[in-house]
């Protein structure tokens, strides 16, 4: 029987047995990865953002080494590409795109939203970022510089959004609840 005719689950079981026997990947490794994939969601990134807004030392760590900052929040990063975090300020707004494919910081944001992989988003983010932001109802002051981040190689990038006014004294839980996935890609900004 040729390999393409073999029953899929049987083939998978045989492959897993071989990987385990050769000490390449154990059943425990697979279970751990499945769990971290299932747990990955924009809520993870939002928790990091909320902490960065309230804890200057954590914010410094996040901008220096996103992977370490994720691990400090118990987000598993083993086997994941390095994570870089770029800060939106009153002067600079970052917008993340992957023009070549769909590189996305899945460890901290989960599956990418459907539009992130579309050819239209990928082309327009680099060609007409302000027009694209307008369609997300995001208008930036004229003097804010847009930095489009084309994520093409070994890093994954996420945006640390600017903390909105009117959130003074909020708890980290309250802050995390207003951070959406688009805010961490840079197509939208958090608001209250």
């Amino acid at each position: 029987m040729s390999i393409v005719e073999t029953d899929g689950p049987e083939l998978l079981a045989a492959l897993r047995k071989l990987l385990a026997a050769k000490n390449i990947v154990s059943d425990e490794d697979i279970a751990a990865r499945r769990q971290s994939t299932d747990n990955a969601s924009p809520g993870q990134g939002a928790k990091m953002v909320a902490r960065a807004w309230t804890d200057p030392a954590y914010k410094a760590l996040m901008l220096e080494d996103g992977t370490k900052a994720a691990e400090a929040m118990n987000i598993p990063m083993v086997g994941m590409p390095p994570l870089g975090v770029l800060e939106n300020t009153g002067d600079v707004h970052n917008l993340i795109v992957c023009t070549l494919c769909s590189c996305y910081p899945r460890a901290v944001l989960g599956y990418p939203p459907f539009w992130y992989k579309s050819a239209a988003y990928r082309a327009r983010a680099v060609r007409d970022p302000r027009g694209l932001l307008g369609e997300f109802r995001t208008t930036l002051p004229d003097d804010v510089q847009i930095h489009v981040v084309d994520s093409t190689a070994d890093y994954r990038w996420m945006v640390l959004p600017k903390r909105p006014e009117g959130t003074e004294g909020w708890s980290v839980e309250q802050l995390a609840a207003i951070v959406r996935e688009g805010d961490m890609v840079g197509v939208t900004v958090p608001s209250v």
Binding site: V126, P129, R130, Q145, I146, H147, V148, V149, D150, S151, T152, A153, D154, Y155
Partner: peptide
């Protein structure tokens, strides 16, 4: 292209 806007990319 708009003055002051920029693009940053990973290159080998």
């Amino acid at each position: 292209g708009r003055a002051n806007d920029s693009l940053v990319v990973e290159l080998y």
